[in-house]
């Protein structure tokens, strides 16, 4: 296995994430998944066991493990911790009675060493129901601000209407490196100006332009011009001379500055 193999594997692994969906029973974990996957959500029964779903989200392949939340199943959650990049904790916002239970389960999960480095997304589900708690309330009840070991974020959402589901996953894949799982191969960088070594250059080889594509591990969502196009514009002619070099880095610098920082809890 040489460097080129490592680079190739690295590219591939950076595009995959393993996400664990947990939460109390009847929180709506399976429903959220089915909604995201475009399946029928009318006839969902309690999950007896676990589901594995794989789907593409933007540039990512997400492997989602959804485990039932009944009390009897909870001791077995730890079977699924291995190699987890992100934990999605689903809360039934209308179930005020069990919030304490919910808080306790969540906080005990976070002490687990195999989840170290996974980011935490809390879905405050069932916002469509009258009288459900707001995300701000849930944040307090679950004592989220006390969490310092994981990156976390709470999103109010509704599995029935689909509100904020995609946005939540967007946050998951955009969570910065360093907080991801311990495997360094998962720790990618932001927008890299590096084309996939040897691969993309081949397609555009006749241009002889060294930089022809970008690996947008972290997709920027607010810039109007993709970095790829920035660079293409810069390098459009086949021949360029050294005087272009400062221009490129200037462009990249500007680009870096104008890109918003990912949402971090205050």
């Amino acid at each position: 296995m040489g460097l080129l193999t490592i680079i190739r594997k690295n590219r591939q692994k950076e595009r995959e994430m393993r996400i664990l969906f947990l939460g109390l029973d009847n929180a709506g974990k399976t429903t959220i998944l089915k909604k995201l996957n475009g399946e029928d959500i009318m006839s969902i029964s309690p999950t007896l066991g676990f589901n594995i779903k794989t789907f593409a989200h933007g540039n990512y392949i997400l492997n989602i493990w959804d485990v039932g939340g009944q009390r009897t199943l909870r001791p077995y959650w730890r079977n699924y911790f291995e190699q987890t990049d992100a934990l999605v904790w689903v809360v039934d916002s209308s179930d005020r009675m069990r919030m304490g239970d919910c808080k306790q389960e969540l906080h005990s999960l976070l002490t687990e060493d195999r989840l170290a480095g996974a980011s935490l997304l809390v879905f405050a589900n069932k916002q469509d129901l009258q009288g459900s708690m707001t995300d701000a309330e849930i944040q307090q009840v679950l004592d989220l601000p006390a969490i310092t070991t994981h990156h976390w974020k709470i999103w109010p959402c509704s599995a029935v209407t689909g509100k904020n589901l995609v946005e939540g996953l967007d946050w998951v894949v955009a969570t910065p490196p360093g907080s991801r799982a311990e495997d360094p191969q998962r720790r990618g960088t932001g927008i890299s100006v590096i084309p996939e070594y040897g691969k993309l250059t081949q397609m555009h080889h006749h241009h002889r332009s060294p930089i022809t594509s970008c690996n947008t591990k972290r997709r920027p969502r607010t810039i109007t011009m993709s970095p790829l196009n920035c660079l293409r514009t810069l390098f459009a002619p086949c021949e360029y001379d050294a005087s272009d070099t400062p221009a490129l880095f200037l462009a990249l610098k500007t680009f870096r500055l104008t890109t918003p920082t990912p949402l971090i809890p205050a």
Partner: peptide, 8 residues
């Protein structure tokens, strides 16, 4: 551990 990013 500093994963250097350009994005953020």
């Amino acid at each position: 551990r500093k994963g250097r990013t350009l994005a953020g």
